[in-house]
Write a protein that binds this DNA or RNA. Structure first.
Lengths: 150, 150
DNA sequence: GCTGAAAGACGGACGTC
DNA sequence: GACGTCCGTCTTTCAGC
């Protein structure tokens, strides 16, 4: 992992569909070594995958919320049960477990406020092991999917 | 935007480097119409971009934190000043403005705890217009970059 | 949906530093 | 060991019809 590899990663974070030819010219390398490096980055797991970034509004998802959840500590498997239940909700597009309060942060999308209310009442509020759950609406995205810094 | 378009978007969220040939066979379409649809999805902005998902640890970023920030309401441009300052920090890889408390949620990466401490003291704690800022460490990612639901 | 031309991908070989 | 340049061939792209 040297400067060239990092440069390749940066370019591919900006445009994941770059051709090897174009990528090679951007990082000032010829095609074959660039191709070799890319293959190594992919097989070593440095590049986890490629993804199209889809405009949520284009698929009718105009509503986004952040959910804060804190668990009760009942059993050893409170965590596992909760996490399984979260993973089963497709509207949860991002979820992380934190140290401290809250225990979990979820990013949830829905079609509109009504759909979110249904989702909240029927699924989020019923998640197992939860002591306290609250949610707030996302007003705006400042930064989304920015390339990792050096 | 019909079922086929949605299917195309789903497949490309799972693998952004699918070739048209492969994509066409997955959505049960022949190559040309699939290609036309893809071009339309790209030019209409439904597909915002393509991006390589890079393993942060592979580039030496082993630390991740969530920052909660609430602003003081001094002037009309408190918000703009704060947002500009946030955007200038490359370690902030995701940022959203919320309704309610906190006003902002930032996702921050760093090489290690020491680097994060420096970043916090020298930059995050000095962000303009902030009334209260606090941060917590990310223990684990449950869900990351999941395809948008239907 | 099909065709055809241009571009790109990808493996190998080989010489250089 | 890594880069660069040649060489193949196969696949993909994308504008015609």
């Amino acid at each position: 992992m040297d400067g060239l590899d990092r440069k390749i990663l940066t370019e591919l974070q900006l445009d994941g569909r770059l051709t090897i030819t174009e990528l090679a010219s951007r990082v000032q390398l010829s095609v074959s070594p660039c191709h070799r490096r890319l293959r190594d980055l992919e097989s070593s797991g440095a590049i986890r995958r490629y993804r199209a970034v889809v405009n949520a509004a284009a698929v009718g998802l105009n509503f986004e919320a952040i959910v804060f959840a804190t668990l009760r500590w009942e059993h050893r498997d409170t965590v596992a049960t909760f996490e399984t239940a979260v993973e089963a909700i497709p509207q949860v597009v991002q979820a992380q477990r934190l140290f401290g309060e809250p225990d979990y942060l979820l990013r949830v999308v829905a079609q509109d406020l009504a759909a979110y209310q249904r989702l909240y009442d029927e699924q989020l509020a019923k998640l197992p092991g939860v002591q306290r759950i609250s949610s707030t609406l996302v007003m705006k995205h400042l930064i989304e999917d920015r390339p990792l810094p050096h």
